[in-house]
Amino acid sequence: MAFLVLDGLTKRFGEHIAVENLSLAVEQGEFLALLGPSGCGKTTTLQMIAGFVTPTSGTITLAGQDLLAVKPAKRGLGIVFQSYALFPHMTAAENVAFGLEMQGVDKSERSRRVTEALELVGLGKFAERHPRRMSGGQQQRVALARALVIRPSILLLDEPLSNLDAKLREEMQIELRQIQRNVGTTTILVTHDQSEAMALSDRIAVMSQGRIEQIAPPHEAYERPATPFVANFLGKTNVLQAQVQSGQALLGEGRWPVPAGSPPRVLVTVRPEKIGFADGGAQALAGQVVTRIFQGNHWLYQVDTAHGRVTVIRQNSGETAPAEGEAVRLSWRQEDMSVRPAETAR
């Protein structure tokens, strides 16, 4: 049995269903990301695990024990709150020390571990600072140190890096991943940043409107999204309407075989980076470049075709890039596209 199991978890706020029949199993030492748009119930789910929100129905078990019967103070979880929730009347060091004090760790050991934790998040010099005199990112890192220092059985992180600049965020991501690998703390990370979820986690649970759409390793969720919502949420994607004739989807001059039994109208999904410019040949969709944006390591194109606007990403590998207004022919490999009946489109 898995380490942490959420089973049929539901939370209603009056009429509004924040989390609906959510089931999830997290293995010991796993790094799981809860990914979803704003308001989809990520924080509510996390707060139910933490014990600050009581589920309307459903169960939570930790290592075979009913967690709902345990008081929040006894759950031994390390939590980084979305609003940081630092103690404003205490310095950074006092904030971090609080949990150790509650555990009855003696003073010298305490100060050693506090210093260590603050060094870890790069705030060694800010130990005596009060939270209100710190930037949002610094506060966020104090919150992280405060959660890490008690060596919790599970780490619950509610958008712990959302306020950091890109460079610092990347550093903290690597740090977080390393801590998690070294200590082996089971971690649940809430985020609405899909690249962060993919960079850090062993598995991603994509949520939408209180339900889980797909739980899968990042690569699998990206390559084989279970629903259109997941496909759209995990990076850019192109969805093209196509007719099916004698087992083949018609896209421009291209003919792509589709699974047997496909309806006459299908939706074809292709990731922008999987589309290439074909020199010639029949297997291609003709179009015209509308915009071309240089983004350093790659070019981003918008191409108008008979099937709508298509986004194309090409590596900046030195080959000549088609100019705006130029006619191009788009093609991709059979295995890079997925086909769905048009009716299921949402």
Partner: peptide, 27 residues
């Protein structure tokens, strides 16, 4: 007062009395 601050103290293992004395009262 941010109610999450009291929750944070609870999650770090503080009793209700400790939360009142150490977290709420000073604020």
């Amino acid at each position: 007062l941010d109610p999450q601050i009291e929750n944070a103290a609870l999650s770090l293992g503080a009793s209700q009395m400790t939360v009142l004395r150490r977290i709420v009262l000073p604020q």
